[in-house]
Design a protein around this nucleic acid. Sequence first.
DNA 1: ATGAAAGCGCTAACAC
DNA 2: GTGTTAGCGCTTTCAT
Lengths: 323, 323
Amino acid sequence: MSTIEDVAKYSGFSTATVSRVLNNKGPVSEKAVLAVQEAMRQLDYHPNNMARALVMGHSNTIGVILPSHNTYFWNEVAVEMEKSAREIGYHIVFRFAEPDREEIDRCVSDLRASQVSGIIQAAGQREDVVKAANIPILSLISNRDGIPAVVSDDDQGGRLATRHLIERGCTYLVHISGDLSYSNHADQRSFAFIRECEHQGIPYRLYQGYSQQAPEEQCLALIEHIFAETPRLDGIFAGNDIMAARCVSYALSRGIRIPDQLRVVGYDDISISSLLYPPLTTIRQNYKMISATAVRTIVAMANKEQPSEPAPIPVELIVRQTT
Amino acid sequence: MSTIEDVAKYSGFSTATVSRVLNNKGPVSEKAVLAVQEAMRQLDYHPNNMARALVMGHSNTIGVILPSHNTYFWNEVAVEMEKSAREIGYHIVFRFAEPDREEIDRCVSDLRASQVSGIIQAAGQREDVVKAANIPILSLISNRDGIPAVVSDDDQGGRLATRHLIERGCTYLVHISGDLSYSNHADQRSFAFIRECEHQGIPYRLYQGYSQQAPEEQCLALIEHIFAETPRLDGIFAGNDIMAARCVSYALSRGIRIPDQLRVVGYDDISISSLLYPPLTTIRQNYKMISATAVRTIVAMANKEQPSEPAPIPVELIVRQTT
DNA sequence: ATGAAAGCGCTAACAC
DNA sequence: GTGTTAGCGCTTTCAT
């Protein structure tokens, strides 16, 4: 690999000048530009980011910690974040972690060592670990610990889903959610569900603590349990599309007609949801906006700007054929 | 951020000694180790990877280029690769690209600049671009251009799927594949399909050039076309699970019973396949093994070892309820 | 407009 | 067993 010095020699200018044309910053003559560019081409020169990052003190890189399971939703976000970052000249380093302290800790050390400008954390409930690292941090899960968060308007989502089910004529609702004991922002979906049901006088049941990455059999067992325990059930609001798909699949396999006998609303609108049978009615999260906002905010934080806490990102009810 | 020099001063030793305990390499006294470790703790020291990479000439990092669409299968691989890499002390930098020359080119420049030890390319048909960069490269798509590839045993996969359909009593088969004109290794699935059909005297039709990331309506149009054009059709072998899911969904919506009237086999066994309705029969690719092999091979290449071209990774027929 | 030279934080001879 | 020191490839004052 040729270095900036090689280019300097070849072009007959100094490394300073080469650096200037490289970053087109500072005064350079037309002649110098041409000569240097030619030299770079001839020598197949590629600047060494490590050297640059070292002298600059940062690498225009932001770290993103994603859960190693529960990937459907986050994968959609990941691709969008990479795109958003690139548009403003940043790179993203992805790390996958289980939501436990040690794994997150390891990721954070790693990322700090890589001189990331900030960390976007989406793997479970350990923002405190990242915060302790004393580096800009943004959560995609919750703003506990006073950490800024970019999240969907889950209250709106819960309301939209529940009202839709009721409007469609459901008389007994069930909501399946993750564990409510971590004060994730997603809990708002459940709270909105409860509020709407009570407000409209619709009987309901809440099943919480079930995550989509639970083992297949466990999920199945839960769903069986729900159907057995709540025979009057005619509407389900699931906390995510995967859970919703499982419910639909189970119901269909038991001869329950959808949407005639049972209506199901999911959450996320991951891209497979539209091609399930029947296509799933769901609450669409705005991936693009979540990603762009998150990236913009963490960069602002890295630049010591005082960004205002971003507002919740609006969601949208997508009516398909399970309701 | 404190530096190695701070730690040296604080501990009363030199940077060389600090470096030694940091990498526990070279002779150091027990006393020194303790003092340095204490200093690191006190100063909340984190080594700067950039500096290290600069002096070492590499960063123990491998670059992976993934398609920005068509993500279902690759996402499963991505997480596994990260894990495999970590186990041997490497990191992965993911980049997403459209399969066109410019995008790939940009990614490669980026990755070279980041001093990756090698590149694993899985975004479409442009391995040549990476090869031109003169850096170790491994393809997950094809071994065209004489580039080493890690791929599934697609011949076996095609055979397994087709035979299974025939054994189940299908009398007229359709196969939907991607574009066969790029000599992707996945084409073997189609060739095996044709071979089996001809060998067993089963009539068949081939629909090629359709990728899963095609716009929704286009896919639907294709499927409608297939059903209209091939009324005797009673078995479909799809090139991927998403296509298979679409076929199932379409058939069901038209009142075609599965598996009674139509049997469908997918490919990949992405994790949603088991929770579709009905759960999808498919060919499972061994993600773990693909990932581990790919990572191991690219690292070997980076170390100038002459790795033997890895053998195709075995696949497995997973019989569920669409057949 | 251009160049010389000082470092960024780290590793690895080499000397002691 | 430990310290001194010369770079790794780059950016950036500060002269000229």
